[in-house]
């Protein structure tokens, strides 16, 4: 029966994808993209990939929609009709699609327990995690410890994106209007915003520190943190949000998270281990792993949250009118 739900979800995804391509209004396309991520997150849930689903929900439906909207607000929401029929891209896409389908022909069947993926590295992770890392969520143990260096790399990618946006767009300080007239009208939004802002932050903390046990971790928590502050900025205006978290502080936090992560690696080297070998951080290896994972997840959370918020600030600070 789950196969049926999978199929329906995939069909819906496909239809959504096609209509995103057809849309000329970029705002409408953005809304559909948000629906697209919701659908694919449900698909991940059905496929039992809970961590991925959580990430997709937080990033795809949340922050990327918001950033897309901020971009549209700065530019335009109409796609220009193409000058000529884009034949070359079409051919490239068709060939790519055919190659992908060709590639699937010899793939092990979906859910086949004899597939190579389930026989080589993965069983060792499943088997060794309780003894070596000592946390219930194997996904976290792979991401944060076995392949922790990849996670550092991904964090560096996000850091690069933040630095890039800052370099290209630059940050403009705005005049000190506390609250623009548009916001005054939204009384209900402000009340709800005030109510939800701490709840979202609380939930982000839960996701941050619960990552060892259930789905979650630094990336998702960081994004949820950023979303919380964005809600604050939406309900009370950018000026007030910047009074809460100034741009300078964000810049420091972006760097701090990265340095914390690298610092854990360096520290484990100084203590005589290899880079990112958490075992040496405490007296016994398992608690060393615990400590290491908590610290690096914290680093990830801080950097991701501040990069996302920084990008939002940078985009919105370029908005011409006072309506923020």
């Amino acid at each position: 029966m789950e196969i049926l739900i999978d199929t329906i979800l995939l069909v819906l995804l496909m239809i959504t994808g096609f209509s995103i391509v057809r849309m000329r209004s970029l705002l409408a396309a953005t809304m559909l993209t948000s629906i697209y991520s919701l659908l694919s997150a449900s698909l991940f849930v059905v496929l039992d990939a809970v961590d991925v689903a959580l990430t997709e929900a937080a990033i795809g439906a949340g922050i990327s929609t918001i950033l897309l909207l901020a971009t549209i607000a700065l530019t335009t929401d109409r796609e220009k009709p193409p000058q000529r029929t884009p034949m070359l891209p079409l051919i490239v896409v068709i060939i790519t699609g055919m190659a992908l389908i060709y590639g699937t022909l010899d793939m092990p069947h979906f859910g086949n327990p004899q597939a190579p993926v389930h026989l080589h590295v993965a069983p060792a992770y499943l088997h060794d995690t309780p003894g070596e890392i000592g946390i219930p969520n194997v996904v976290t143990s792979v991401l944060a410890s076995y392949r922790g260096y990849d996670t550092l790399g991904e964090l560096a990618v996000i850091f690069t994106a933040g630095a890039g946006v800052l370099t290209l767009l630059g940050y403009r300080t705005r005049g000190g209007n506390s609250m623009d007239p548009g916001i005054r009208k939204l009384l209900i939004l402000r009340v709800i915003g005030k109510l939800f802002f701490p709840l979202i932050l609380l939930f982000a903390l839960y996701v941050q520190f619960h990552g060892d046990y259930g789905p979650g971790g630094g990336f998702q928590a960081g994004v949820i943190f950023a979303t919380g502050f964005i809600l604050y900025a939406l309900a009370f205006g950018l000026g007030n949000a910047q009074r809460l978290i100034p741009h300078q502080l964000l810049r420091i936090m972006v760097a701090f998270g990265m340095l914390l992560y690298i610092g854990v690696g360096i520290e484990s080297m100084l203590l005589g281990g290899k880079f990112l070998e958490y075992n040496v951080l405490a007296d016994d290896p398992v608690s060393g792993q615990h400590l290491g994972i908590i610290l690096i997840e914290l680093g990830v959370g801080i950097t991701v949250a501040s990069v996302m918020l920084m990008i939002y600030y940078v985009f919105r600070s370029r908005q011409p009118e006072g309506d923020l």
């Binding site: 550092l152 560096a156 850091f159 630095a163 810049r251 420091i252 972006v254 760097a255 701090f256 990265m258 340095l259 690298i262 690696g265 360096i266 080297m269 100084l270 005589g272 290899k274 880079f275």
Partner: peptide
């Protein structure tokens, strides 16, 4: 720490210097 860790230090030094640069 030094000699055997060279391969990773090679990459980590610029990676660590990048956020420091952002702070300056």
């Amino acid at each position: 720490m030094l000699i055997s860790d060279l391969p990773v230090l090679q990459v980590v030094i610029p990676l660590a210097a990048a956020p420091v640069c952002l702070l300056l």
